[in-house]
Design a protein around this nucleic acid. Sequence first.
DNA 1: CAAGGTCAACATGACCTC
DNA 2: CGAGGTCATGTTGACCTT
Lengths: 357, 357
Amino acid sequence: MLPLNNVTNTVESSKQLGIGKVVRYCVICGDKSSGFHYGVLSCEACKGFFRRGHNSEFKCKYMTPCVITMENRNDCKACRLKKCREVGMNKQPQSLQPAKVPIDPIQQDKLEFEWISQQIRRLYSSNYDYSSDRMRLMTIKDLQLENNTKTLQHFINEINSDITSFVLFLKSVPLLDDMTPEDKSILMKRHAFSIYVVRSAPAYTENGFLCMNGGRIAWQKFYDVYGELGIKMNAFATEIREMNFTESEIGVFVMLIMLQPIPVEDVVQTGFQNVSLLTETHTRFSKILNYQLTTRDPENRLFDKIQGLIEEVNTINNLHKQSIKLIETNITSFSVPPLFADVFGFLDAVLDDQTVE
Amino acid sequence: MLPLNNVTNTVESSKQLGIGKVVRYCVICGDKSSGFHYGVLSCEACKGFFRRGHNSEFKCKYMTPCVITMENRNDCKACRLKKCREVGMNKQPQSLQPAKVPIDPIQQDKLEFEWISQQIRRLYSSNYDYSSDRMRLMTIKDLQLENNTKTLQHFINEINSDITSFVLFLKSVPLLDDMTPEDKSILMKRHAFSIYVVRSAPAYTENGFLCMNGGRIAWQKFYDVYGELGIKMNAFATEIREMNFTESEIGVFVMLIMLQPIPVEDVVQTGFQNVSLLTETHTRFSKILNYQLTTRDPENRLFDKIQGLIEEVNTINNLHKQSIKLIETNITSFSVPPLFADVFGFLDAVLDDQTVE
DNA sequence: CAAGGTCAACATGACCTC
DNA sequence: CGAGGTCATGTTGACCTT
Ligand SMILES: [Zn+2]
Ligand SMILES: [Zn+2]
Ligand SMILES: [Zn+2]
Ligand SMILES: [Zn+2]
């Protein structure tokens, strides 16, 4: 039994209470709905499909009945049309036009979670160098690193590159439209290293740390630079991998890290503006991750492990804030890209002409 | 081990000996090939697909790797492109252009059998009222038949209608292009009742004989009209159903019945022209059915049962030739459509204004 | 012959009109 | 609001040109 089935606590029900814009979803494919069409809450696409094809005869060529989604709706006209009919679409002239099929709030909530999950997956995957698609195409090559400075420089580049991608993700991530770029930036900076460690979890392989371009850093080199912290990072990455997160789930998980409550003193110090929006958004992402994990694996209570993971990565993030000073004190030995410097608070000399390869 | 694997006896090898037109098949999807493209024997469609998409990156969304066929080639671009590459398609500028991938005669034979089977399936299904698609949509309704004349009239109409469909099938059936309509007609008439019995096999249900429009004739009425012959017909239909023929296989099976050797005296009497073409065509269809049955069920030697079935239906056909005189002698009691009259040799009074409903 | 271009046919879905 | 129309967009594959 999914937590969703509690009618009194659905997103849909809060909508009915007038909180937030009303967004409805197509009961055929789950895409955003543009209202009722042929008696059924449906999207423009399914509406057009039914208008064109309501009296066609298609034949499904698959063994098992197709489950229609936003992504596969064009794969089987037969099952799409069948679904249209099943959910009650009809094309009566005007006379005996049956009543609209009423809105099912629980279904709408489910569809909303799925719609958002899917948006996040697309967005996250296209701004993520360790996506399984790209991992497959990666050509691994061991890096020869003469000293710690070289190794650290590699990580500076890696982190800078990953944050650059993540910022693009943040720019369009759903449910965060109303947050100002400044607030987003403050939150991102607070948890930048956490974010990197989570996102780079697939890089921790048996034979070394995989850079995004396929370069592999031997564990010895890695530990030479990160020391004790490195051991924690590796252990944490393993726990993350063992969760078997989908890319959509990682996206939401990272949001949960970033959207943790911010202490009052930090609000003041950073000039963070909209605390209530932060709280609200955190709650919504939390519900989404809960839905995702419960749906994927109803047996194990995966969501229960999330809080522990977040605390663990918070620890790593804090430790890193101390060790980062190693770079700051030796700033002239490194080529530090502006974004990296900004994120980790190197206020002083960062040359303009420094470039990231 | 398929009989096909005998290289010295492939259709492909006879082509190499200069017998017949050379037809080649796309090694990617099995459609007719228009020659070598990008190094590989392929069709216009796969050629165009590879030209447009050779450097694209697609992602297969299915669990199991897709098997590309003429019919499904547009369903998974990823696997289609993969197959293009696997069979050796390449788009080198001009310089190090690898040698053409040589023709595999065994593969070509297989593809030819499959191509023809598929053509026959399409053609047969669209000219067949007992196709499983139409059977599904059939609404059954028990017929009230007051006397044998009424029952027989129903069968006259059924047979006439089925033969009409079959003639359309014959008109475009592959491998028979070179046979004259006159010769086709002679053969069809010889075995018209056999053809009907085979094609109407799905009509023999537990509760009666199903007419094409869904009308059901009780077995008692059926036997009142057909007597002993009816028992043979029913038994034969059961055997046919137990073969679990695909529609393509029924199409070929019917051709085998029709293309049986014609005795010399009948050649003379009917004015049949091209006996050698008849023999040759019979052999080709025979090979096709053998291929189809062996591929579908390599364990049971289904093809071995074919000769027996043909002899059985020949017997029924001959018995029917005698009982048909019942109609001829009472011709005025019936409405006999011209095609029916022609096929069963009612040379005399068939009124011009008789129509088939 | 085969590589590449062309384009009619088709399906889709965002947007518009009433 | 929603039914219906519109049309830009993208893909396909038969046919043509070189
Ligand atoms: Zn839809
Ligand atoms: Zn389907
Ligand atoms: Zn092909
Ligand atoms: Zn595939």
